[in-house]
Design a binder for these strands. Structure first.
Lengths: 196, 196
DNA sequence: TCGATCGCGTACCGAACGGTACGCGACTGG
DNA sequence: CCAGTCGCGTACCGTTCGGTACGCGATCGA
């Protein structure tokens, strides 16, 4: 929900909060600009004055949703300096925690990628950048562990987090959370024991 | 693409093939019925005579897409009778193979769930049923392995397949395929060695 | 006090959506 | 030869989509 500190009018602020809530609950394409405007109690032109278009609003939303995940690497580094294993656990735990939010509907970034299949679409471009950035940071972190192929392990961990987020919306968040921590533990053990 | 053997008019047949292709390439919501009709060279009423509505067409599509995955359990059972480990490998390999199809855009069922967030929507209902059925069959299969908690392993495997399908569309199918086989191997080993 | 500026909402736009009324033309049984 | 049926496409329906022209009212500097 962090909004990059953009200065905005009161009406624009209500639009932003409403859009975040509606997008989170129903996805982006399912929500029309008229619905956002009505729900937030402002006219549509106010929406278009503060955000140039629905696409721009969607990009801002998706970027804002990614902030916490990306920053979790910095948070972990500061909380457990010199302990990459603890940092990794923190990053994974953050995903597990997020899955516990009521009405969790899966990773917003991944979902948005599905909603915008055209890779040239500005929203999709932003999504792909964010996913690549996450994998980059994860790989960087895993590289500090004593494993032979950190890139492979990082990719596998990303897959697991992605899968946990996805299954959480089909079955129960509890099972996905439990399976995520359990499986990442086993996998990391497997990579660590192979080459200490 | 198997179509449950429904008998259909020539026009309806062209509609069906076109719809499958367009849905696969661009998703369901991105494709309008007019586009399907025009691309297949038939009028819209032909579409509505053969399929009652776009939703019905989408349900048929999503069911058809799920057939191969669900049948892979039967195929595996016949190919490797009495060898649940080989059967499991076959089921997982099928997912890896599917990920290799050009223009792969992730699991159709999972993607459709994102496109229809409303759990009461008929398309979403069908999707949820199919996912539950897949997990049911997977759990049944894993239960034949000598592991303590087959339900947990099955859930983890489903998570992995889901994650591999999802990451394949962000990064490369090759990495996801490799990571899927590698990670499932390690995970199954981990569960088998714990309690032979 | 007046005039310019600014944020705002009403009312509207063309396009695209899912879905349908209706009439044409080709077969088929008598 | 003809009447009924069946599959089909043209042309249209109302609704909703994202986006905009425009005028109102409050605020603020002179």
């Amino acid at each position: 929900m962090a909004d990059e500190g953009r200065t905005r009018s009161p009406a624009g602020d209500r639009v932003w909060r409403t859009a975040c809530e509606l997008f989170s609950r129903e996805g982006i394409r399912s929500v029309g600009v008229a619905e956002i405007a009505e729900t937030s109690g402002v006219g549509k032109p106010s929406l278009y004055r503060n955000f140039g278009s629905k696409d721009d609003l969607a990009v801002a939303y998706v970027r804002a949703q990614a902030v916490e995940g990306l920053e979790s690497f910095d948070v972990a580094r500061k909380a457990f300096p010199g302990d990459p294993m603890a940092q990794l656990r923190h990053v994974i735990a953050r995903v597990a925690t997020e899955m516990g939010t009521p009405g969790y509907r899966g990773c917003v970034i991944a979902n948005t990628a599905i909603e915008f299949p055209d890779r040239a679409h500005p929203v999709r471009v932003a999504v792909d950048e964010l996913k690549a950035e996450y994998l980059r940071r994860l790989t960087e972190l895993v590289s500090q562990l004593p494993v032979r192929d950190p890139g492979e392990l990082a990719y596998a961990l990303q897959m697991l987090m992605e899968g946990a987020s996805a299954t959480a919306q089909f079955f129960t968040t509890e099972r996905s959370r439990a399976a995520l921590t359990e499986t990442t533990d086993r996998l990391i053990d497997s990579y660590l024991s192979a080459e200490g």
